[in-house]
Every structure is written in structure tokens, then in C-alpha cells.
Nucleic acid binder design. Structure first.
Lengths: 124, 124
DNA sequence: ACAACTGTATTATATGAGTAATACGGTTGT
DNA sequence: ACAACCGTATTACTCATATAATACAGTTGT
């Protein structure tokens, strides 16, 4: 069963995207595996304190990326293979790296200082 | 005169926040200095292709942080000193570093690999 | 003085995100 | 068979973002 322990809602981006990213990061980290069952829309929305429609929107996007499979009436579960995991890993790494790099470059930060800042903030 | 050359609207976060961050990064980079005049609300909104109210919202937030000064009828201009610049530099560095670090840690990426990814994507 | 700007304010409309309350039909375990 | 789940769909509401069209008063340069 895919666990959402440790998931905390942050403002600044839509909740359904935060759920999508949480699942993708779990896939890359290896704690979400092929065949794992997902909590139902109702159960997860109650656990997170959000609306069932919000969870449904995240699950729909996961299904459109062929990462989960849903049948009306039954539980949804993960459908993964090595190619998909590799694709998501590259997608997320590039996205997060580029976001931080672009911002720091616009601030006039040097590569050396950027690396030093990442090193310094890594713990905690 | 503060220049908005190179500013490109991206979706995913409110435009008025993108303007706010663009100015703050310019302050840290040193290309926006104390006393610099800002383009008027009308001129900038026309240049960016957005609504004057959107620019006004960004300028209002800048004024609430005491980074610009506005008098009805006259041009707005930057009001900066070393303490403010240092504060913004620390604020932005910590924000961008923590965002990337948290995401990568949730992906199970090691500090060494994170540094290597930043190093690899820095050029481009 | 006066035209051309400036900042500021108001009202209205549209869209997307999120909530709320239901409803319908399929599956699963007992 | 049947109760208790499940996924899916619909309608209505609130709120923030963004746009649009004005309006008014203050400043600035000539």
C-alpha cells in the first residue's frame, strides 16, 4: 500500500500537483513499487484533509501518464517498469536542478558558491 | 532606469510574484541599485503584455517591503542599502537551495549526486 | 499655465483551484 | 445475495489571479 506519511500540504502550488510530485518522488526513491495498491480517493482525501475531487484530479493525471491503473469499483494500483522509473528520475532531476540553477544565475551567484550553498543546507 | 529586458512570463506562479522575484534577483545581482527609477505601471504592463493592475500589485508588495518608494504623480524609485540587499540575498539563496534540496532528498538522491547534477546542468 | 505624464482607486468579468454535497454503477468479501 | 466498499460524474459555491475600462488627483517639463 502506497503510504502518504510525511506528506505535508504547502501553499504556492496546486494540491493536486503536490500529490502528483509526491508519488513521482516516491517512485524514484523506490518506496513506491510496481503493483502497490493506492489508498482510495475517499480515504486519502480524508487523511490529507482535502476534497475527494482534488485527489481524483491527481490520480487522473497519474493514470494519463500510465503510472497507475484504475477500474471502476476496484482499488487502483501502480503500473511501473524500469523505463518509466528512469524517465521520471531524469524528468524530476532536470526540473529541480534547472529551477534552482536559473534562479541563482539570475542572482549573479557563481557555480562555486551555488555548490557551497547546496552543501551547507543539505543537512536539516 | 530598472530594465526588464530578459524577463519572460512563465506559468505555474502568479505574474505579480514573478515580477517581485525578478526585481529581487536583480537587486542581489547588483544590476538594480539604490535610487534607480522604475518604469511606470502603464509602461511596464505594456512592455510585458500584462494588465496594469498586475504590475501595480507587484509594486505594492515591493513598497510594503520598503524596497521602492512611490509618490502619487511621480516616478517610483528604488530605496536600498547594504542591510536590505544582504537580507534579500540570504532569503533567496535559502529559499531556492531548500526547495531543490527537499525535492532531491525525497527522491532518495545523495548529496554527492545532487552536487554532481548541479555541476553538470550549470552550463547551458 | 498646461499638456503629458504619474500613482491610485473602483467596478465588472473570466478563469482555474478547491470545496461541498450528491448520485450512479461496478467490485469485493462474507 | 448483499452490505460495504470502490471509481466516476455532476452541480453549485468560494476564492485568488488576471483582465478590462475608467476615473481622479498629484508631478513634471516646457
Amino acid at each position: 500500500m502506497v503510504s502518504f506519511d510525511g506528506f505535508r500540504i504547502e501553499d504556492g502550488s496546486p494540491i493536486y500537483l503536490q500529490i502528483l510530485l509526491f508519488v513521482k518522488r516516491g517512485i524514484v526513491a523506490g518506496c513506491i513499487r510496481n503493483g502497490d495498491e493506492l489508498p482510495s480517493r475517499r480515504v486519502l482525501s480524508s487523511f490529507l484533509g482535502v476534497n475527494p475531487n482534488t485527489v481524483q484530479k491527481a490520480y487522473r493525471l497519474l493514470e494519463e501518464e500510465c503510472l497507475i491503473q484504475s477500474r471502476a469499483g476496484a482499488k487502483s494500483y501502480m503500473v511501473l517498469d524500469k523505463a518509466k522509473v528512469d524517465r521520471i528520475r531524469r524528468e524530476l532531476l532536470e526540473y529541480h536542478a534547472r529551477s534552482a540553477i536559473n534562479a541563482m544565475r539570475q542572482m549573479g551567484i557563481s557555480k562555486a558558491e551555488a555548490l557551497s550553498v547546496i552543501d551547507m543546507f543539505w543537512e536539516s
